[in-house]
Design a protein around this nucleic acid. Sequence first.
DNA 1: CCTACCGATCGGTAGG
DNA 2: CCTACCGATCGGTAGG
Lengths: 220, 220
Amino acid sequence: MLSFPLLRHAVNVPQPTSTPPVTGARTSDPDASTVERLLQAAAHAFADKGFHATTTRDIASGAGLSPAGVYVHFGSKEELLFALSRSGHESALRLLRAAISDGSTPGEQLVAAMARFTEWHVEQYQVARVVQYEHHHLTPEHHAEVLALRKEMDSLVRDVLDRGVADGTFSVDDSADTALALLSIVVDVARWYSPTIRRTPTEIGATNAALALRLVGAGH
Amino acid sequence: MLSFPLLRHAVNVPQPTSTPPVTGARTSDPDASTVERLLQAAAHAFADKGFHATTTRDIASGAGLSPAGVYVHFGSKEELLFALSRSGHESALRLLRAAISDGSTPGEQLVAAMARFTEWHVEQYQVARVVQYEHHHLTPEHHAEVLALRKEMDSLVRDVLDRGVADGTFSVDDSADTALALLSIVVDVARWYSPTIRRTPTEIGATNAALALRLVGAGH
DNA sequence: CCTACCGATCGGTAGG
DNA sequence: CCTACCGATCGGTAGG
């Protein structure tokens, strides 16, 4: 299991100092494993230019490798996208599940899910962009695998809404429509966010959590 | 001024019958002008595969032209994207302004803006996808021109919110954050919508308008 | 608006 | 994991 999408943790690990200095266009952490560097460089490039506009040479040089270096670790450019997309979806799903299990009421669960999922979209906005906007470029088989994970995210949110309606804390017209709108607010962060924006992940997460409570009629 | 982004109107115009039958991969209305057919074919292809994955040959054949036919009307692939993106932004802006001027109260204006802008994203989802997700591929000069139009859309929505707060019908914590969330709900339609979805544009528009009222504390 | 074409680039492979 | 390379494709142009 790749730890890559949760770089916040990896960054706090003690750093070996035996690595040669970074040269050229390398954009990824020189202390990470080669596969992790490739995934990081791919996330960077795919988020910035999109899958098709990114060349395997961009990714290779971003990871500090020769043009053919990608093919030592991945069979094709699409397989690299798949590895990145799948691990990104799995991280997001774990995060959502953890946030929901932290809350003891539907209101707390909704707030935790919106805040933490939003924070992830900000902190991992390059991975999030690939997760949300590049999965169409996968092969049909790989796409199907990722779509199953996406449906699971949707269900998790809808289930929180249904529990809140059942216990009377939420009031929504249609839980599927409302879940989609909640996810729209979060997913769209990956579109508009840029590192030049001053607001912190926590602030953006708190804003989206408050908006979510309004949307389910529990905003006061 | 191109009428292209409002095809609903063009389709109701009487059709001349002197046009030769459609052959090959043509995807656009054979009765439209060549420039309009190129813009239609480009919207189709850019929305489906993205700017970089689309070849000028895809667009040319979609419009019923030879591979070099694009360059009779546009200097480059990017100029074609710019023409499409600009006319799409202008249509969207006109639509938003018209919807807002139709309402006499902030509540009516918000409902009209959300419903009609959402309907546009559904009915013109290919143009909307290009408008919302492909503008990064423009040259810096063209990008700046389009960003000005995007800021104007944002201001229109924020102004409705501010008027509703001023007259006491809305209650929002921060009008900029709330305007962004409202636009997220609309823009995200271009991501998730597909023609296989059964709900009509009117239904989706009404749903988003109702969600918007909840978000501004006027949902009951 | 088309045919024919060019230079550049790209994904991927051979063979160390 | 690299050097060297190949076949295919692409954006764009010449010259009708």
